[in-house]
Design a binder for these strands. Structure first.
Ligand code: MN
Ligand code: MN
Ligand code: MN
Ligand code: MN
Lengths: 228, 228
DNA sequence: TTACAGAGTTAGATAATGCTAACTTCGTAA
DNA sequence: TTACGAAGTTAGCATTATCTAACTCTGTAA
């Protein structure tokens, strides 16, 4: 099948794909930490394999087959992260580098077992959706905390930044998925947000609140990840 | 560090190493399913890296460094197999191909976690010893069932053949690690052995009894694997 | 004692993945 | 309308891991 390298290219393509569906070679090379000629060369080969639509100087886009394969790698990655947290006791800030490797294991039975032991979770430990077995990635209707109104009561359901540093920062603040928070005030000038939750109160800068995805309480599209 | 390929060569070297400590290129190439020139080429590179003692036309042997690295890969393999059986519910005949891949994951924390969750087992699901963190492989004092005397009462503790077919065959017979068996009779001519255990009685051909490793009851060097 | 079969080696090739240096194309700012 | 810088491409090369074909060495059977 696909080598780990190929799987990583497909995954990067999917991650970089925006509304337009288009990705540039430069973005890919940055994302994967390879030179532009290296990315260019690989793209041509993925194109020959029917995984990417490619024409010289044109933006890249995944074929339907490529998109599905990418989503299935993402499924393996996120199931693994959930397994590591829920069943092995790792912290949410530790699991990404391990999942980055385990996602390339070729064993449907292994990932089916994880899924079954986890009760088919819909979200990973960082609140990102887990694609289904067919490679369908559910969109979720979550809002940036930074877009919410003062006075609103919301539940933390996802993150735009899942870096270990950011996750540790949230740990320090006592924030985790499922935390019910009230927006006490939004600073008119710097857009920082004062929050209260679980007896605590914190003020977060705008850059941070843009990384926090929330839903209305009891709405709960985060079953399988919001609860500890 | 070492690529999966290199780790597989080292592991094969260790597996093929007999009392003499010597291994041939032909054996290696057969074991790994590569051509002799391929094995030859790799051996030279492992030699340059200080993992194997090599001189043209001479038998191969692992250096101390090579032996330790090989044992640490075996540790990862066997811990993984134990984890898959005990914590994920796989059958002992299913786990080898998965462990063959997971053994190449580069994450000390991942394997430490497995070890901890398993309570630092000494044996894998097939009764093979798990090397310690320093790469020391305990020898075990087990006897081939085929060498035992009629009338002896013994406990199944290990296998010389861990192929899926053989494991399924043992499942059918109701034989598993920890099973207490009495040797009812040994056929004088064909050396087949009549056994009774758990209310059952079976006769096994000589080829089979040579694959079964046993210990005296209550001797129990198989803690962590003999019990289900 | 020697010749021959099997084991080991050499040579040359290929595919995957990566690099740097240098060239071309393209969109846009002046 | 053009020219300049960023983006993309081409060319050439390196490394790892593999192959086949052909050669050489070595231990042993006659
Ligand atoms: Mn991740
Ligand atoms: Mn990866
Ligand atoms: Mn195994
Ligand atoms: Mn392996």
């Amino acid at each position: 099948m696909a080598t780990p390298t190929v799987e990583n290219y497909l995954k990067a393509m999917l991650a970089l794909t925006r509304e337009s569906g288009a990705v540039t070679i430069s973005d890919l090379s940055t994302e994967l930490g390879v030179s532009k000629p290296t990315a260019n060369n690989m793209i041509r080969r993925l194109s020959e394999r029917g995984l990417i639509h490619y024409q010289k100087y044109q933006p890249l886009r995944l074929t339907e087959q490529g998109r599905r394969q990418a989503a299935l790698v993402v499924r393996k990655h996120r199931l693994t992260e959930m397994y590591l947290v829920k069943k092995m006791g790792f912290g949410w800030e530790e699991v990404h580098p391990i999942a980055e490797q385990i996602e390339h294991i070729d064993s449907p039975a292994f990932f089916e077992k994880m899924d079954q032991l986890l009760g088919s979770p819909n979200y990973d430990p960082h609140g990102s959706p887990i694609p289904d077995r067919e490679g369908n990635l559910r969109g979720t209707d979550r809002e940036r905390l930074g877009e919410c109104q003062a006075g609103a009561v919301v539940v933390l359901a996802g993150l735009n930044d899942s870096s270990a540093d950011f996750l540790r920062y949230l740990d320090e603040k006592g924030l985790r998925l499922g935390t019910l928070m009230k927006i006490e005030a939004i600073d008119a000038y710097d857009k920082s947000v004062r929050l209260s939750y679980g007896g605590k109160e914190t003020t977060l800068p705008e850059t941070t609140v843009q990384q926090l995805l929330v839903v209305k309480p009891s709405h709960d599209p985060s079953s399988g990840s919001a609860t500890k």
